[in-house]
Design a protein around this nucleic acid. Structure first.
Lengths: 195, 195
DNA sequence: AACTTGACATACTAATTAGTATGTTTACCT
DNA sequence: AGGTAAACATACTAATTAGTATGTCAAGTT
């Protein structure tokens, strides 16, 4: 039996993924769990702090974990990169997931202009992902596995953009195929980086 | 002196761009124009129809116009493509615009799971853009200007994704430089398509 | 055994929301 | 000149919202 706080976090994460932060009625979410507002406001002082906790404890760690293998691997960056792209495909493997889009992208569109706490956290997570990719690319260049004629910073931004944009376009088109095309293109693009 | 309906449309478009559809209080927006709810509900039956009108009359035409030149040009697709990418750079030329992100992407993240009317319209606009790009690429292949060894459909999705994703990442990073890096990469990528 | 504390439930509130019902004014039409 | 309709304004409402104040109960602590 998982503890109540964790369950509140997860259920509200799902609700945010579905309706956006502004669309979530946190008390209805916990009502569906069979508990009341009392529990909700016992664990979280307000709705925004609940949102922050979801970013800090769920979304942040999740996304950073994805690219960790890329940053840490000591060789075969090309292979690891392909694996990461594969893991993104897995991450969006059902039509339902495609229709909801990338939780990080969703929040990135919705919240930064409205709230500073969200803005900072989304900035940090995105920045860390970009650095992880950049580090991986640089290492691959140093190892002689990748060519030297591309800018790792620029390329890292490009990877992130293409993937997040792929989620977005696939969501608009309601088409998993669209997302897979973007991943396929990115794989092809990655081949071109090899020495 | 512009007519009231048009002004309501534009002001609410800006508010949606800033706060998202769910975050907009349409009566407050018109109050800032110096008019009242009466005018608002005189021209639009409800908030959602106001949103639909913004998509149909402002956002849709705007985005389709951007890629029209690409679809219609009879030669030098490479040049036109670079011009379109430049126009995207212009479109997001201030830091303020970067912080607000792409209006189309914003709505694409927020609305489709919540409302069918938005979903259909965002689907149509995105689909039309993709087709315009695809047609342009195909024509360039037929004209012998671009190589034949790439899939125009896939590549069209890739362009859209990278651009929209570029907006998203730049918004998260609050960095116009990030967006420009993505555009720069896309230009480089475009060079690789040439025969 | 009295006391405290954590983990909730219940009942309430003040503000905000989209939307409506009902004016009023102005211009135009006949 | 009388009537009509568009273009708004004013005043209201019902529902929903996040949040609070208070209560209860079981488990430990001293």
């Amino acid at each position: 039996m998982t503890d109540t706080r964790t369950e509140i976090l997860h259920k509200n994460y799902e609700a945010i993924h579905r309706n956006g932060f502004q669309g979530v009625r946190a008390d209805k979410v916990v009502a569906e769990m069979g508990i009341t507002k009392g529990a909700l406001y016992h664990y979280f002082p307000n709705k925004f702090d609940l949102g922050y906790a979801i970013l800090d404890e769920l979304l942040g760690p999740h996304y950073l974990k994805i690219w960790q293998s890329f940053e840490r691997a000591e060789k075969n960056f090309g292979v690891v990169l392909l694996e990461v792209l594969e893991s993104y495909r897995d991450f969006a493997k059902t039509d339902e997931e495609i229709k909801l889009g990338c939780p990080l992208t969703n929040l990135t569109q919705e919240m930064p202009p409205l709230d500073e706490g969200f803005r900072k956290r989304l900035h940090r997570i995105t920045h860390q992902m970009q650095l992880q990719i950049e580090t991986g690319l640089k290492n691959a260049q140093l190892a002689g596995e990748f060519k030297l004629d591309f800018n790792p910073t620029q390329t890292a931004f490009f990877y992130l953009s293409a993937i997040e944009g792929g989620f977005s376009v696939a969501k608009a088109m309601q088409s998993r195929a669209a997302f897979e095309m973007v991943i396929a293109q990115l794989k092809q693009f990655s081949e071109g980086l090899k020495a």
